[in-house]
Amino acid sequence: MKQHPFNLTKWQHWLALGFGSGLAPKAPGTFGTLAAIPLLYLVWPFGIWWAAAFVVLGTLLGVYLCDVVSRDIGTADHGSIVWDEVIGFAITMFAVPLSLTNLLVAFLLFRLLDIAKPWPIRWFDRNVHGGFGVMLDDIVAGILACALLHSVWLPLQI
């Protein structure tokens, strides 16, 4: 069994790995996205301002985490670093009512955009580096997924 390069006794590594979800042997980004769901259930009931604070502070924290952990392990954007997926999914769900159906549609949409990386996501992924670069493609994927949810999916629910 191959040993991972992370030091789980460092809080930065533990958070960057999405509480360990990024160590899944297959599809770590998918497991990182799933790790966001309990956080949404903790924060979203407090209202949109708490959700906004979570997204902003989580993004700032993520830039730091992704930069520090990438430097620690000597790899620019290791697949097990999934805090970017956590925040990307929180952005996707911004101002979206928490329901099983909404979570499922949002999850599929975010993962599709994050994996396929259509323009402009691919451009950011290839051209912006460091901790900010690791976060930015998932932020853009989250914004696009959120826009699609609000403009196409949620109107169908009324």
Rank of each mutant, 00 (worst) to 15 (best):
L61K: 11
G62P: 11
G62D: 11
V63A: 01
V63T: 00
Y64N: 05
L65A: 05
L65Y: 12
C66S: 12
D67T: 10
D67K: 08
D67A: 11
D67G: 13
D67Y: 04
V68Y: 13
V69K: 01
V69R: 01
S70D: 02
S70I: 02
R71S: 13
D72A: 11
D72R: 10
D72Q: 14
I73N: 04
I73H: 00
G74T: 09
G74N: 11
T75F: 12
T75R: 15
A76G: 03
A76I: 13
A76N: 13
A76S: 14
A76F: 14
D77G: 13
D77Y: 13
D77V: 12
D77M: 14
D77H: 12
H78S: 03
H78W: 02
H78E: 03
G79M: 05
G79Y: 08
G79Q: 08
S80G: 15
S80C: 12
S80E: 15
S80T: 01
S80Y: 06
S80H: 14
V82L: 10
V82T: 03
V82Y: 06
V82I: 04
V82D: 07
W83C: 07
D84K: 06
D84A: 09
D84G: 10
E85C: 07
E85V: 08
V86I: 12
V86N: 09
V86K: 07
I87S: 08
I87Q: 04
G88W: 01
G88E: 07
G88H: 11
F89R: 02
F89M: 06
F89W: 02
A90V: 04
A90M: 09
A90P: 07
A90G: 10
A90K: 00
I91R: 12
I91Y: 07
T92K: 13
T92P: 09
T92Q: 06
F94T: 01
F94M: 00
F94S: 00
F94C: 00
